[in-house]
């Protein structure tokens, strides 16, 4: 008789993240599905850094600005790493953050990026992240989503030299064209 090996259900867990190599890829887990993002392009990194610097300059004492990879675990089955995030200083743990963020920012690697535009949007919405900014460096376009109750509404779409005067998480001025200089 032959020997048949059945596959154990193999959902990815947050414990699996400890076993993955430190190879420049970004590893995120959404309820057992593993999302692997290659090392970003330079225009992506430029935008990430400029946005983080702009936020850092206006950030009040009780809040903190982080850049990826910073582990945000809104539930026991989800680990995501926004490109830039703002949270309360008191919510920062030694390894990760669990409490709802005040702002998550994703910088798109491809304008179409549905993982950012659709999946991350839903994840941040469900986690109660107050503001979600999607920045498209190719189009120099900032999309600002803010929670109204428990769903995101599109607060602004700002392009090129137009300035966005954010109120949340604190007053800050963002000019998309200046973010990709």
């Amino acid at each position: 008789m032959g020997y048949v090996e059945t596959l154990e259900p193999g959902h990815f867990t947050l414990a699996d993240l400890e076993l993955l190599p430190d190879d420049g890829m970004r590893y995120e887990v959404v309820d057992g599905v593993l999302l692997v993002t290659p090392a970003p392009l330079t225009i992506h990194q430029t935008a990430t850094l400029e946005l983080a610097v702009a936020l850092r300059q206006r950030c009040p004492e009780n809040l903190k600005v982080f850049v990826a990879p910073t582990d945000y675990r809104p539930t026991p089955t989800r680990s995501v790493q926004p490109d830039v995030l703002v949270c309360r200083r008191e919510d920062v743990g030694p390894k990760l953050i669990e409490k709802p963020l005040l702002l998550a920012v994703e910088v798109l690697s491809q304008s179409t990026s549905l993982a950012d535009r659709v999946l991350k949007r839903r994840l941040y919405e469900q986690a109660g992240v107050t503001s979600y900014w999607i920045f498209d460096p190719a189009k120099e376009e900032l999309t600002v989503l803010e929670l109204a109750g428990d769903t995101y509404v599109e607060r602004a779409v700002v392009t090129g030299k137009d300035a966005f005067e954010a109120k949340l998480p604190f007053p800050v001025r963002i000019v998309p064209a200046d973010v990709v200089v």
């Binding site: 596959l7 259900p9 193999g10 959902h11 990815f12 593993l34 999302l35 692997v36 491809q110 549905l114």
Partner: peptide
């Protein structure tokens, strides 16, 4: 390896082996 590999806008999406 029993996993499903998909690519979404240049990003790899890996699903583990599924339950019976």
């Amino acid at each position: 390896d029993g996993r499903r590999y998909e690519v979404v806008d240049g990003r790899l999406l890996i699903t583990g082996a599924q339950p019976p």
